[in-house]
Write a protein that binds this DNA or RNA. Structure first.
Lengths: 222, 222
DNA sequence: ATGCAACAGATTATCGAAAATATTTTACCT
DNA sequence: AGGTAAAATATTTTCGATAATCTGTTGCAT
């Protein structure tokens, strides 16, 4: 069998929703499913706990981190801190290569967005191109830590974004916030870009609020 | 024997410099020293790797993360992103309780700073009060993630700060940047405070540069 | 001498049994 | 019935033996 990494495997399962929020991650079950011993599983879960996708309670094992509004809002706040600073630095330092990567990412994003609702696969492809675009924007920031933080926060955000089909993809491309954001970034209008990304971070929070998502069912806090 | 957590134990050893930068963390040795089996050690080291204090290489084990200028600078950049945003939110949301905590932290800091150079213990106490002050400033930001990130970045920063005795404690308290920073924060002069903390983040970078620290010996990059 | 392959020693990574801890069930008393 | 204690079961967590991998060394051919 191909050599696969348990951490990535579990992460994928969580992000794809195979392991649902709050689900206990039983040792026996994971051992069976991935065909590995206890040690690699515990190690992987420990790391994922540090990453924020998994919750660990002493002597009670691990479970998939639950979703709630407060946590989503917090992700947005943290992303705000990271992406604002990273974008600022990126727009100051970014060279021609950086610009062209943005143009390329934007092109892909447009294509994937157009076909987003054709199937589950094209939807996933759209999501991927979306995250890639955001990464491209800050790619020139020069800070490994900011890039890594963005990556992790994007992952955590993804689980929430998938709760609803975000009504953010318009037939008219110019209606899409990303079009305008990318344009402003490439024109190096720094303050405008930072302000835009700050608002942009709140889209999923607002969308779920507008849909009444958190009021519908009884909210599971734990 | 008291029930202790291996992760905290190893973290302390790294931060206190018992385990020096780049030192391989051998399983056998740690097993012996802490009197535990392999599993808890690997788990702890995995988490510490995610935290950034330890480096993990597949099939080559773990070692204490090395120190170099680029990494210190990156810590400063990340702290900049986190503390600027957190301070901003804290200054907007902070109530009377928050203010009084700052006054208290500042008082302690002043006392510890005055006695900082008496002994190794008082120096450590000063460091602790310093980090506590910074935490107090952003305590009202309302974001668990930003608070957690600050904590982790402070830890990572600590190893660098200890490389030199930072000539930042003046007999005249008003010369200390922290005095002015705390004052500006309490007066809610937002833009000034954010600008100050941004500069403040670079103190250790500049101090080590000024001391020629990185040019002295041959820099170990790996 | 130099390069390379096979061997030997050291170290990490994994496994599954055993110990520790939590949870559920049962039995008993008021 | 309601509540508590003890036993039984389920689950996590740790341990040390074993397997896998890396590193350095020897011996041999060029």
């Amino acid at each position: 069998m191909a050599k696969v990494n348990v951490e990535d495997l579990v992460r994928d399962h969580i992000l794809r929703g195979v392991f649902k929020p709050s689900t206990p991650l039983k040792m026996e079950e994971l051992k069976e499913r991935f065909d590995v011993g206890y040690s690699p599983i515990r190690e992987a879960l420990s790391r994922l706990a540090g990453e924020g996708l998994v919750l660990a309670e002493a002597n009670k094992g691990f479970r998939v981190r639950p979703l709630n509004r407060a946590d989503l809002y917090d992700i947005a706040v943290a992303r705000c801190a990271v992406e604002k600073e990273a974008l600022r630095r990126s727009m100051i330092e970014g060279d021609d290569g950086w610009e062209s990567e943005i143009v390329a990412a934007m092109h892909t994003y447009r294509k994937k967005a157009a076909a987003a609702f054709d199937s589950a696969e094209t939807l996933a492809a759209w999501e991927l191109s979306h995250d890639r675009l955001h990464t491209a924007l800050i790619a020139a920031c020069g800070s490994p830590r900011l890039l890594d933080l963005q990556q992790r926060l994007q992952e955590q955000h993804m689980r929430y974004r998938r709760l609803i089909v975000i009504p953010n993809v318009r037939a008219d491309a110019h209606e899409d916030e990303h079009e305008r954001l990318a344009a402003v970034v490439l024109e190096r209008r720094l303050d405008e870009a930072v302000a835009m990304i700050e608002r942009h971070m709140m889209i999923t929070v607002d969308a779920l609020d507008a849909a009444g998502y958190w009021t519908a069912g009884p909210e599971p806090e734990t």
